[in-house]
């Protein structure tokens, strides 16, 4: 079974995308399954490192938190652009944040969250020291951003990935 379907979640996702792009029918389901199985086997040939999820519920919670944050920061950045940065009072800055995450999968998730949220940009990450260099659009207090990243996002990511 695992030899035939080495990455079941990837295969399922590929079948879902195939059915989204074409209309749903029995023929497309079979064709999509064949393509997904072959693609998953090709993916297994690359031998990627397996990612283990410990608590998926924490990820669902994170998803809703990030969704709300994206809406909030969209409004904030749009207002800042409209008012020309509080009429010249806004200033941006770099923040260095030491991260506890080391595994590449949760790190890339964190990168997606930080970049998808307007107002923060992931600039650089150093693998050896684990320090993330973040650029913040509207800097008020450096400590605020450290607690935001570490307590709001990183905590849940540490919880959901072993």
């Amino acid at each position: 079974m695992t030899r035939l379907f080495p990455h079941p979640l990837l295969s399922l996702a590929l079948v879902a995308v195939w059915l989204l792009l074409n209309s749903f029918s029995l023929g497309h389901l079979i064709l999509g399954t064949v393509v997904a199985t072959l693609a998953a086997r090709a993916f297994a040939a690359v031998e990627p490192e397996r990612v283990k999820l410990r608590r998926p519920m924490a990820l669902v919670k994170l998803f809703f938190i990030v969704g709300a944050d994206i809406i909030r920061s969209n409004i904030a950045v749009a207002v800042l652009i409209l008012t020309r940065g509080r009429h010249g009072l806004r200033h941006s800055a770099f923040v260095e944040i030491p991260l506890r995450l080391r595994h590449p999968a949760p790190l890339s998730l964190l990168a997606m969250i930080v970049t998808a949220t307007p107002g923060t940009a992931w600039v650089d990450y150093d693998e050896e020291t684990g320090i993330l260099l973040l650029h913040v659009f509207d800097m008020v207090d450096t400590a605020d951003w450290k607690t935001l990243i570490r307590d709001r996002y990183e905590e849940l990511l540490l919880e959901s990935f072993p």
Partner: peptide, 28 residues
């Protein structure tokens, strides 16, 4: 929102500030 993002892209002064502008267009 996409229009505001590109307005920011033209209006903002430094490159790292401009890096934030297109995320308006790509998120909401």
């Amino acid at each position: 929102l996409t229009l505001l993002g590109t307005v920011g892209l033209v209006q903002l002064k430094s490159f790292y500030d401009r890096l934030h502008a297109p995320t308006l267009g790509t998120s909401w």
